[in-house]
């Protein structure tokens, strides 16, 4: 575009100025709450800082060398990927399944639609307390139930041993966040024209064929966006895991968020924590670029 000032209509220029004026407050707030902490983190990451006093000295790239050569970051990255992949897969499978079910004309539909949101609205602290009670090795309902069914013959220490702890965290994460997928998918399902299903029925497609040939293609875009969004959110999930296992046993459920927290407030090494968080951000950048490219393509 090579529109010069002379051939841009005056009204259009006035609109452009108005536009700048209108987005200015947003830009300002955005800079304060996002850009500043980001720059601060990068700044902190080249110092060795004692958290309680926030005093320290410049160490250059030392923190990053530690990140690359030590095993903490890579261990946590692995844990984070396992957690993200595991919980996201379950969220999508159960979310889409439940959305399809709730899209049917069943009598308890409106009740079920509100009930399904329950885990999502529940405060994480409350949810985790309930789940810890369920998972408890001494009096937990989970062990009791599984033993009654004959699946277990000894009570299991769910959150205190591997791989059960990871499985537990993934399950609770899936339970907590699948309603988001249900809502987004259900909203999209309701916009698929009924005529397409009718045409498919006349064309001889059974229920399975109708799902793959009519429903799925229409869900593709919304699913891509959901997966990317949830991947970003799950990747940086903190409170749920922290409250459930605290990263344990040892570091086997210590995701990057927990590592950063542990480094900053457990070991009081703010500089190293900042370096880890910058590393984490770079990994997340990959998701974000994908997300932005994806949503940009749609408009």
């Amino acid at each position: 575009m090579s529109a010069t000032a002379t051939n841009t209509p005056r009204l259009e220029r006035a609109y452009a100025r108005l536009g700048v004026l209108l987005i200015a407050p947003t830009i300002l707030v955005f800079s304060l709450v996002i850009v500043y902490p980001l720059l601060a983190a990068i700044y902190l990451s080249v110092f060795s800082i004692y958290t309680p006093t926030l005093q320290g000295n410049f160490v250059g790239a030392d923190n990053y060398v530690k990140l690359l050569t030590g095993h903490e970051f890579w261990n946590s990255l692995g844990v984070t990927l396992v957690w993200t992949f595991g919980t996201l897969t379950l969220q999508i499978v159960f979310g889409v399944g439940m959305a399809l079910l709730l899209h049917q004309n069943i009598w308890f539909r409106s009740l079920a639609r509100s009930l399904v949101l329950f885990p999502y609205f529940l405060s994480t602290v409350v949810a985790v307390l309930v789940w810890r009670w369920l998972f408890n090795d001494l009096y937990g309902a989970m062990n009791h139930g599984l033993m009654q069914l004959g699946i277990l013959d000894m009570p299991l220490d769910w959150l205190g041993s591997m791989p059960n702890a990871m499985i537990g965290v993934i399950l609770v994460g899936a339970w907590k966040y699948f309603p988001f997928v249900v809502i987004a998918v259900l909203a999209r399902l309701q916009t698929i024209p009924e005529h397409l299903y009718e045409a498919a029925r006349i064309d001889g497609a059974g229920p399975v064929a109708r799902f793959w040939d009519v429903t799925m293609p229409q869900l593709r875009n919304v699913l891509t966006v959901i997966i990317l969004l949830r991947a970003i959110w799950d990747f940086k999930e903190f409170d749920l895991i922290y409250l459930l296992t605290g990263g344990g046993p040892v570091t086997s459920t210590q995701t990057l968020s927990l590592l950063v927290y542990q480094e900053a407030f457990g070991l009081n090494r703010m500089g190293q924590a900042a370096a880890y968080s910058v590393g984490m951000m770079l990994v997340m950048l990959v998701f974000m670029v994908l997300y932005i490219r994806r949503t940009g393509k749609e408009s």
Binding site: P193, H195, L196, E198, A199, A200, I202, D203, G206
Partner: peptide, 16 residues
């Protein structure tokens, strides 16, 4: 519908 040996054209066309 698929077994009636009929074809239908919808007002909205209903193309996939």
């Amino acid at each position: 519908p698929g077994k009636r040996d009929i074809a239908m054209v919808f007002q909205s066309y209903a193309l996939y």
